[in-house]
Simulated assay, not measured.
Amino acid sequence: MVTIYDIAKACGCSSATVSKAFNDYADINIMTKQRILKTANEMGFIPNTQARALSTKKTWTIGVLFQDESKGGLTHYFFAQILEAVKEQAEKSGYDLTFISRIWGDKKRTYLEHCRMKKTDGVIIACIDFESEEVQELMKSEIPVVAIDYSSPNVSSMVSENYKGLNILTQFLIQLGHKDIVYMNGHLTAVTYERINGYRDAIRKENLRERIINSKYYDRKTTIAVTKALIESGDLPTAIIYPDDYGALWGIKTLREAHIRVPEDISVAGFDGIELGEMLHPRLTTVKQDMRGLGRGAALKCIKMIETKKITKTETTVGIELVAGGTCRKLDK
């Protein structure tokens, strides 16, 4: 097994210098550091993570707290892409990921207790009840935390342009001639309220009928039930905006099973820009979020707080893109 002493000998320097290069100390020449890291890689050096943790007072792990109500787990179409980007950026920076839960063996712990027991350097949170007491406790702790798709002055976060997304999507439908547009919102969070306001402002600008129906994000059962209730009401709109693409796909299936054609009889749009929407024929109209940008940004923000030892509470906004697919049609005047 290759040791730091072997690398030091190959580079013609001391083992202390090699150690400084691995631990990114400031008092080492950048060229020397690059030469040491290159030599270590060529020699197949594998760092001793336990020794590294002792010397740096870090475990080099970032916790991931994720528990969506849809029970989709790692198959969650939206979060899976975000998590992959988090993983790539963390690994590139020398960190591992570990999942945080309330269960430790046969005992229940709070999220904060779990993080402290695992000694995670930081935590990234997504798809969870951010207002729960345990999550709030974690966000107010000494541990660097970054929330994804959650807006609050109490924690650092990565969010999309949610207001703009619903606003331009609603305007797009209005430009197609739609005057009766239903928006099915997801769980009532700060992000959801931004989307509702985006929809409302576009509707009110044209003095149109406001129709908002409560639903849930990534919830097949609720989406089907709400869509069926709308069909049975006998008051179908000309267009429906679902909380997310997953809901839009189930909504389209439910409408078609009731012999309501999309887009011939009713237009449908989603939000997120997941790959499944591209596979649909015709392609789903949606607002595409930069999921990889959200994940990469969350990892970088968390790592910066860890390495500077300064907890910040800033919000970073990532852009969106309207995808004008074929599930929305222009109405005849």
Rank of each mutant, 00 (worst) to 15 (best):
I241N: 09
E88Q: 13
S55K: 10
R209A: 13
T327E: 03
D332E: 11
E275I: 15
Q81K: 10
T312E: 13
L208Y: 05
Q50H: 12
M1P: 10
R329N: 04
L65D: 02
I181V: 15
A202Q: 08
I306G: 04
T254S: 04
N185K: 14
Q34C: 02
E307W: 04
M291P: 00
G63A: 03
F271G: 02
T75R: 09
I196Y: 08
F66I: 06
Y95W: 11
E161P: 08
T327F: 03
V86T: 03
K309G: 00
S93N: 14
V262M: 07
A16V: 06
G122F: 14
K205D: 07
I303K: 03
L236C: 06
K58R: 14
N185Y: 10
A40N: 01
L97V: 08
G73N: 07
T3M: 03
V287F: 15
D6G: 01
P282Q: 06
Q34D: 01
R220S: 07
P243N: 04
E206D: 11
D129C: 10
N154P: 02
A85G: 04
K20Q: 10
D272F: 15
E210F: 11
L166N: 11
Q81N: 04
E113D: 15
Y218A: 13
F78C: 05
T312Y: 13
S132A: 12
N162D: 14
D244I: 09
H259E: 12
Q67M: 12
A21F: 00
A21L: 00
Y163P: 05
R292W: 12
E113L: 03
V155Q: 05
T227S: 07
M1F: 10
T56Q: 08
A26F: 14
R256H: 04
T170N: 02
G247M: 04
T327C: 07
S141Y: 10
K179M: 08
S267M: 07
K108T: 13
Q50R: 08
D245S: 01
N207P: 00
K304I: 02
E161T: 09
I252H: 10
K118C: 13
T227C: 04
S55T: 12
Y95H: 11
H281R: 10
P144Q: 11
G105S: 05
G277I: 05
F22T: 03
V323D: 08
K58H: 06
S19K: 01
L97H: 13
G122S: 12
M43V: 01
L169N: 02
T285D: 01
R283D: 03
Y163C: 09
A248W: 06
G293I: 11
S132Y: 08
